[in-house]
Design a protein around this nucleic acid. Structure first.
Length: 417
RNA sequence: GGGGAGAUAGCGAAGUGGCUAAACGCAUCAGACUGUAAAUCUGACACCUCAGGUUUCGGCGGUUCGAAUCCGUCUCUCCCCA
């Protein structure tokens, strides 16, 4: 469904390439090494190996993860190769953050079943021809205890305890499992196996990525450049974007949905979103930010531009434009959406063609219980055929195609049958 | 191995015999205001055709006119010492 946007990057100088890569990054370790890698690659005419490690849980890509994936895509457009490592092995040894103890333990079958999904989802943003997806159990499962000891000997307890998560827990006398200490070592070893030139990650991955450098150095390799992207703040403006918090925009969401969600972000987030989720050139972003601050352009106009840019990436420009029109229709002009999901109401629920509003709302899925439905009516949130329903005891004369509205954004078209 | 603390609505957290469908905060939903912003304000937030009624405070059983609160038991969490 996606036009799979390309960067136009032919014949860029190293300086120009570096500038594109630097956009939005939170940290690069180090700029000098990055430049050197790029130069060497160009001279030797060989692509750099760029690595990203991901969880084996079923992917559901949202704009937050897309920040990193889009950066990978840039590397591909610059002629380099991307390897995505699915951490199926590391997932089985426990989450070192200590937070999510409930991380699901996936079976090998589930992981395999997900494999196709990874391919499909990641390639929405990445170039399939330059993307390799591998599972780290492939080499980690082969290691025997002696291999593990030798690998562990490459680093020290003091080094591991530098990680602030471990440091905090150690100071607070909370337990740190030996297996957790091994986690960064496993992840770092992935880099050794892949001989990666660059590892990408969110800022929370810094320690693990640096471990990769240490282990590569110990193995006699040129250490990978570490490129960290900030964690995108979610729609609520406070927490990082994540599916579990519900403050996300999935890249597979319908255009209208996407557009509306983006319009709901706090104004302060716009600049960051432009930088991290669109390809709008940075000098233009800076200009938009000036316009916003001095009030010369209405914030809503700027936000619509943002929403349109993002939707264009995943749905194309035509669709994005109509998403904006749709948004205006519903929210600015308070008209009905152009497409309203239909809800069928069984004839059995009708008496003389009528239905109690409480049942109608629960049947239509707008309320979990008739008590909730009753409240919605009492609060003035329910409209039927444009008319506000005021009495919770109301019996409604149903007809095909009439419109039920709950709140400002939930609509359904009634079908009797 | 020894000792201690706890389990309350989506989450966090009050409440230690009746005035408690259960304070307060967060999240959520509706309304107002707007740029569907955000912020703010108002209200709702167990279930039931609801001026009333029914069922809740980890499970089960008991004491009592009356239990989230007391007793017994089971399950599960967490902490400290070694």
């Amino acid at each position: 469904m996606s036009p799979n946007q390309h960067h136009t990057v032919d014949n860029l100088s190293i300086d120009e390439q570096v500038a594109l890569i630097q956009r939005g990054t939170s940290e690069i370790i180090s700029d000098a090494e990055l430049r050197r890698k790029l130069e060497t690659a160009q001279e030797e005419k060989r692509p750099l190996r760029v690595k990203l490690g991901l969880d084996p849980t079923a992917p559901d890509i949202h704009l937050g993860i897309a920040v990193v994936l889009r950066k990978l895509r840039l590397f591909q457009d610059l002629g380099h190769e991307v390897t995505i490592i699915i951490g199926d092995f590391t997932a089985t040894i426990g989450d070192p953050s200590g937070k999510s103890k409930t991380r699901p333990q996936l079976t090998a079958e589930e992981v395999q079943a997900n494999a196709k999904t990874y391919q499909d989802q990641y390639c929405q943003i990445l170039d399939p021809d330059k993307t390799r997806i591998v599972f780290n159990s492939q080499w980690l499962n082969q290691m025997n205890f002696s291999d593990v000891i030798k690998l562990s000997a490459q680093t020290t307890v003091a080094r591991i305890l530098e990680r602030d998560d471990f440091a905090n827990r150690f100071a607070a006398n909370t337990p740190i499992g030996i297996h957790e200490i091994l986690y960064p070592i496993c992840q770092g070893y992935d880099s050794v196996v892949l001989k990666s030139d660059i590892e990408m990650g969110g800022t929370d991955q810094k320690f693990n990525n640096l471990m990769g450098r240490d282990l590569q150095r110990a193995d006699g390799q040129d250490p990978q450049v570490v490129l960290l992207m900030p964690l995108l703040v979610g729609l609520d403006g406070t927490d990082k974007m994540s599916k579990s918090l519900g403050n996300y925009v999935g890249i597979y969401e319908p255009a209208n949905e996407m557009f509306a969600k983006l319009m709901s972000i706090p104004d302060e987030l716009m600049e960051t979103y432009f930088e991290l989720t669109t390809d709008v050139p940075m000098d233009e972003v800076a200009q938009l930010q000036r316009d916003l601050v001095d009030g010369s352009v209405h914030p809503k106009t700027i936000k619509q531009r943002l929403a349109r840019e993002v939707v264009t990436i995943y749905h194309g420009e035509t669709v994005a434009t109509s998403a904006q029109a749709e948004f205006d229709r519903i929210h600015r002009h308070r008209q009905l959406p152009s497409e309203i999901p239909s809800v069928s109401i069984s004839n059995e629920d009708l008496t003389d063609g009528k239905i109690w509003v409480g049942h109608l709302l629960t049947q239509a899925g707008f309320a979990k219980s008739t008590s909730e439905a009753r409240r919605l009516v009492q609060q003035g949130g329910v409209r039927f055929d444009g008319e506000k329903v005021v009495d919770p005891a109301t019996l409604i004369q149903l007809q095909d195609d009439l419109i039920l509205q709950v709140g400002k954004r939930r609509f359904a078209q009634i079908k009797i049958g």
